[in-house]
Design a protein around this nucleic acid. Sequence first.
DNA 1: CCAACATATGAATATATGTTCATATGTATA
DNA 2: TATACATATGAACATATATTCATATGTTGG
Lengths: 111, 111
Amino acid sequence: MGNDNCVIKKEIDIRNLYDLSELFKVFGDSTRIRIIGLLMDGEMCVYHIADNLNMNHSAISHQLRILRSAGLVRPRKDGKTVYYSLDDEHVEMIFKMGLEHIIHKNGVVEN
Amino acid sequence: MGNDNCVIKKEIDIRNLYDLSELFKVFGDSTRIRIIGLLMDGEMCVYHIADNLNMNHSAISHQLRILRSAGLVRPRKDGKTVYYSLDDEHVEMIFKMGLEHIIHKNGVVEN
DNA sequence: CCAACATATGAATATATGTTCATATGTATA
DNA sequence: TATACATATGAACATATATTCATATGTTGG
């Protein structure tokens, strides 16, 4: 890593670095991260998400759209209601990794 | 996970969720993620970071301050120059995990 | 078809945030 | 001490973004 032989890898990084920041930007909002936190426990419909977070359904819908276009969550329609779930295990991993960092920095918080 | 027995864990999550979004917010800027990308290869001084990114030294300094107060980078002073490096291995992990997600989503980009 | 419901979308507003410019701090060298 | 250099900081401006309100789309049941 870091030697100039690795030109291909460097290309990938440069090309994807902007996308990477965009990805983290999606995680970087308290409403969205709370939505992700809820979905860690399984799928949930818009109504219940909004209810859990004590927020406007519209606001949640807007945020879900952002999460959806970032490929972080996936909708499943059943009649009138739409259930959302985390798209893949990377999302959980990134979430958990961040949480570990926080806990590590704050000192161990476990009780 | 998700059952109401896990009150302690829930407490932790709720308390740390805002901090978590703040953490990702720091990753969620293209300048800062490029700085982190550079520091993946080892420590580097402000001058060279700015040079590498073709940016104002002031802008870099501002962003380094944000990275510093988030605990993502660490300064080492040597005479006039200040060298920055990634603070701990969590930072690299989060970076790599995100990159994997991007590459996974884009389809395999290798070569 | 109509009413009730769940979700989505668009426009508007208020707030947050990144970069620039000017200037300050701190360090080495003449 | 004076000058040059590396980095840091503060204010200002321009842009991005989250939430709200109003409205639209789509679905179920009467």
